[in-house]
Amino acid sequence: TLFEALYDYEARTEDDLSFHKGEKFQILNSSEGDWWEVRSLTTGETGYIPSPYLAPV
Rank of each mutant, 00 (worst) to 15 (best):
33 G>Y: 09
26 Q>Y: 14
50 P>T: 05
34 D>E: 12
17 L>R: 03
45 E>P: 00
9 Y>N: 02
6 L>M: 09
33 G>R: 12
3 F>T: 02
32 E>I: 12
25 F>I: 01
3 F>C: 06
38 V>W: 01
12 R>S: 12
32 E>H: 13
49 I>F: 01
32 E>L: 14
1 T>F: 12
3 F>N: 00
40 S>K: 14
44 G>A: 04
4 E>I: 15
41 L>Y: 06
51 S>K: 11
3 F>Y: 14
47 G>M: 07
37 E>C: 14
30 S>D: 13
50 P>G: 05
11 A>I: 02
39 R>N: 02
5 A>I: 03
4 E>G: 02
51 S>V: 10
42 T>N: 10
31 S>Y: 09
18 S>A: 07
13 T>H: 14
33 G>S: 12
47 G>N: 01
30 S>G: 09
14 E>G: 13
49 I>M: 04
21 K>F: 05
27 I>D: 00
49 I>R: 00
34 D>A: 11
42 T>S: 13
24 K>G: 02
36 W>R: 01
42 T>G: 07
12 R>N: 10
35 W>H: 08
29 N>P: 02
44 G>H: 06
39 R>E: 05
37 E>N: 08
38 V>P: 00
30 S>L: 09
17 L>N: 02
55 A>S: 11
39 R>H: 05
5 A>C: 04
41 L>E: 07
25 F>H: 00
14 E>K: 12
55 A>V: 13
13 T>K: 13
47 G>S: 03
6 L>R: 07
23 E>A: 06
50 P>L: 13
41 L>I: 10
1 T>M: 14
45 E>H: 12
52 P>G: 15
41 L>W: 06
16 D>S: 15
12 R>Y: 09
56 P>G: 05
15 D>Q: 14
7 Y>V: 10
43 T>N: 06
42 T>R: 13
5 A>S: 06
35 W>E: 05
51 S>W: 15
55 A>W: 09
11 A>T: 05
23 E>I: 04
42 T>H: 10
38 V>H: 00
26 Q>H: 10
47 G>K: 03
10 E>D: 10
52 P>H: 15
51 S>N: 08
20 H>T: 12
21 K>L: 05
53 Y>W: 10
23 E>H: 08
44 G>R: 03
26 Q>W: 14
26 Q>L: 14
54 L>F: 07
20 H>S: 13
37 E>F: 15
51 S>P: 09
12 R>P: 11
8 D>Y: 04
21 K>S: 05
3 F>R: 03
18 S>Y: 04
39 R>F: 08
29 N>Y: 07
25 F>N: 00
51 S>Q: 07
30 S>P: 07
38 V>E: 01
43 T>S: 11
1 T>H: 11
20 H>D: 05
27 I>H: 02
21 K>E: 05
53 Y>H: 06
53 Y>L: 11
50 P>S: 08
23 E>R: 00
32 E>C: 13
28 L>G: 01
14 E>W: 09
19 F>W: 05
42 T>V: 10
18 S>V: 04
42 T>I: 09
45 E>T: 09
49 I>P: 00
38 V>A: 10
17 L>H: 03
15 D>K: 15
48 Y>T: 08
34 D>G: 12
35 W>G: 03
45 E>A: 14
27 I>G: 01
40 S>Y: 03
33 G>E: 12
2 L>V: 13
52 P>A: 15
12 R>V: 13
20 H>C: 11
33 G>N: 11
51 S>L: 05
